[in-house]
């Protein structure tokens, strides 16, 4: 801790004001979610008064229109399923690629690395056509698509850390008669656990908020939260602003709860992911 000089106090005051600026947009949306829908666009920066206050009407409205709890459920299942599958499969793949040397092995590794810089719009159309043809247009199929499309970054991060595991550990286990599958689950994966947290957090942030991929693949039958919010938009000007505000608040709440619970891991994950990325 540095002593509280005048300059430092000024910096703290400035940072405090800036923090308010950073939170303000969320607060404004929360305040507006309690106003009648026709009062929001006309006076977004005022508190609701007796004439404009609408209680939880917007929330009830929005939840009905978008089936918010259904969307929450699909978002949760898809995110947990895809993140779990990605962490399991790509950590195994990464260890394999780190240990089995050869031309084929490094070709596969470089294909994974290559996939990281390919923007989604490049494969958007063909990927959704393939998913439809193979009948992968359901939440389970989407989870497998996330494994395929998201494998690049995760394999890349895991491989970097898997290469650093001392070979002696693995040799000792082999001498003791431990096969590769058991060795992975009892020795390698526990060593990779901090990396697994990083990979899980980076993927969870992406998949939970992802709009276009789920919209194109399952959007007509299943709505995740971002799809439900976008669905409220309807035609420009004709939408229910109150329901939209309420849905924005409802979609931010789970993120804030997740953030408060795992803040330490999220920040560590971002740093670790960035250094490797």
């Amino acid at each position: 801790m540095e002593k509280l000089s005048f300059k430092n106090i000024l910096t703290i005051i400035f940072l405090a004001l800036l923090s308010l600026v950073f939170i303000a947009p969320v607060i404004i949306v929360v305040i507006n979610s309690f106003k009648g829908q026709f009062f929001i666009a006309d006076s977004p920066f005022t508190f609701p008064n007796s004439g404009t206050f609408s209680g939880f009407e917007n929330y009830i409205n929005g939840i009905e229109k978008t089936d918010f709890f259904g969307a929450f459920f699909y978002s949760l299942v898809i995110t947990i399923g895809a993140v779990g599958l990605i962490v399991l499969c790509t950590s195994m793949t990464a260890w394999y690629l780190a240990r089995v040397k050869g031309k084929l092995s490094s070709l596969i590794y470089y294909l994974f690395v290559f996939s990281m810089i390919v923007p989604f719009q490049m494969v958007m159309f063909t990927l959704s056509k393939i998913a439809n043809t193979l009948r992968f247009d359901n939440p389970l199929g989407l989870i497998l698509i996330y494994l395929g499309f998201g494998a690049g970054l995760s394999v890349f991060i895991f491989t970097g850390f898997a290469r650093a595991i001392p070979l002696e550990i693995e040799e000792a286990a082999t001498v003791d008669g431990c096969g590769p599958v058991r060795m992975f689950f009892y020795i390698i994966f526990p060593i990779l656990r901090p990396t697994a947290v990083t990979v899980a957090i980076l993927n969870a942030m992406w998949i939970w908020n992802d709009y276009l991929l789920p919209y194109l693949i399952i959007g007509s039958d299943y709505k995740t939260i971002p799809i439900a919010v976008q669905y409220l938009q309807g035609g420009y000007g004709s939408r229910d602003m109150g329901a939209l505000m309420a849905m924005l608040v409802l979609s931010i709440i789970p993120i804030i709860i997740f953030y408060l619970l795992c803040q330490k891991y999220i920040i560590k994950g971002v740093v670790a992911g960035a250094v490797k990325g």
Partner: peptide
């Protein structure tokens, strides 16, 4: 804000 999705 980084945790909030692009649509929202």
């Amino acid at each position: 804000p980084n945790l909030i999705g692009g649509i929202v």
